[in-house]
Structures are given as structure tokens and as C-alpha cells.
């Protein structure tokens, strides 16, 4: 019993009240919130991608080492540390297809998959947004072996890149410069959901330039 007049319980709180409560919770606590009951879970899901006001530390090395050790389809886990409670490590799982992480913005990690394609990944909601494949760029050419498997990429007709390195190089060398410039000019209008579109847009623009 909670409401002395309405006889409602805490799980019956209107969704806008639940949304107001959610904005005061840091990410780990938001997840605990969502696990309490189904109404709270839908409120949490409806309030969108959680926005942490405190940055996270992510230990990518663990993930790479674990990846070397493991074979098979299981997900990888990676340690996250929250600045407000550094003694506590959160084991966050990642799909196995990711080989590198080359950046983060607005709660999204920019991951590179086994084919060197960039994927936006939210480690908390596990949402993924595939970005256009690197072969969409006319300067990148894929080379396949006899069995049809991807062997490597050729960049601007001469440099040969192992698939797993091209993605990170591509991000650092090309996208990040363009994106940084764009963000610098448009800081005010950039929101979470816009990031994917932005990278997409920049990628397309670069495509035509190259």
C-alpha cells in the first residue's frame, strides 16, 4: 500500500513520474530500476538510451585477451568501471564479432567488426546500428580467396590492409577528422540518435569526395 487516497502502489506510478525519477539515476541504477517490475521496465525502455552524466572507464584489453583465449560463439565480457564507485567492476558482454573499439560518443561505442565495418553499439541497451560497409567507398576494394571468403582489402589501389586493422585506421584517419569538424560546428544540434545519421552522412560525403 502506498497511496493513502488512490490506493495505488509504487509500481502503478504514472509513466511521466517514472521518467522524471529515471533522469536522476545513473546507468547501473537504471538497470536495477528496470528489473524491479514490468511497469518500471517499460518506463525505462520508453525513456530511451540512458545518458550517463559521469563517464565510464572501459577496459578493452580484457576483451582482446579473452577473445584470443576463446573459440566458439559465446559473447565476450569486458570490465566497466563507474567513476562514482571504482571498486566495483561491471562485466558487460559484447557480441563476439567485434574486434576493436575505436571511439565513443553520447553513450554509443564505435566498434569494428570482423569485416572491418563500423558498428555503433550501446553496451547497456545492446542496440546496434550498422554503418555502411567499408566497401561502399570506391577507394576500398575487397579481395576474396578461391572459396569466396574475404582475404583482405586494398586501399587506393596499392596498400593492402588486413581486414581487422582497416576499420580502426579508417575511423582514426578519416571519419574522426570529418566528424570532429562537423561536431565542432554543430555542437548544439547533435543528439544521441543523430550520431548515426551524422557518421552516415559524413561517410557518404567522403565517398563522393574520394
Amino acid at each position: 500500500m502506498a497511496g493513502t487516497y488512490t490506493g495505488l502502489s509504487w509500481s502503478d506510478l504514472p509513466i511521466d513520474i517514472l521518467h522524471t525519477i529515471l533522469q536522476y539515476l545513473e546507468v547501473p541504477q537504471r538497470v536495477a530500476f528496470a528489473s524491479v517490475c514490468s511497469t518500471w521496465r517499460s518506463a525505462s525502455a520508453a525513456s530511451g538510451v540512458p545518458n550517463s552524466s559521469v563517464p565510464w572507464f572501459m577496459s578493452w584489453t580484457d576483451l582482446r585477451e579473452e577473445r584470443k583465449k576463446m573459440h566458439g560463439g559465446r559473447a565476450l565480457t569486458c570490465s566497466f568501471y563507474h567513476l562514482l564507485d571504482v571498486d566495483k567492476a561491471y562485466a558487460v558482454s559484447f557480441p563476439r564479432c567485434f574486434v576493436a573499439c575505436c571511439g565513443a560518443s553520447h553513450g554509443w561505442l564505435i566498434m569494428v567488426n570482423e569485416l572491418s565495418n563500423l558498428v555503433l553499439y550501446n553496451p547497456f541497451t545492446m542496440a546496434t546500428i550498422d554503418l555502411p560497409p567499408v566497401t561502399d567507398f570506391s577507394c576500398v576494394e575487397a579481395v576474396y580467396d578461391d572459396s569466396g571468403a574475404l582475404e583482405h582489402y586494398i586501399f587506393v589501389k596499392k596498400r593492402v590492409h588486413e581486414t581487422k586493422y582497416l576499420g580502426t585506421w579508417f575511423y582514426h584517419g578519416v571519419i574522426s577528422c570529418a566528424l570532429a569538424q562537423f561536431l565542432h560546428l554543430n555542437t548544439q544540434i547533435v543528439s544521441d540518435s543523430k550520431l548515426a545519421e551524422l557518421i552516415l552522412m559524413d561517410a557518404r560525403r567522403l565517398h563522393t569526395q574520394l
Binding site: I21, L25, A32, V36, C37, W40
Partner: peptide
């Protein structure tokens, strides 16, 4: 709710799982 597990939160607010 801060620092509490889902179980502890349910207990505080008397919410049925």
C-alpha cells in the same frame, strides 16, 4: 534507490515481483 539491488528496491517500495 541508489546503491540498491532490484530486490532491495522492491523491498523499500513494497513492490511485487
Amino acid at each position: 534507490m541508489k546503491g540498491k539491488s532490484p530486490d532491495q528496491i522492491r523491498e523499500v517500495f513494497n513492490i511485487k515481483n
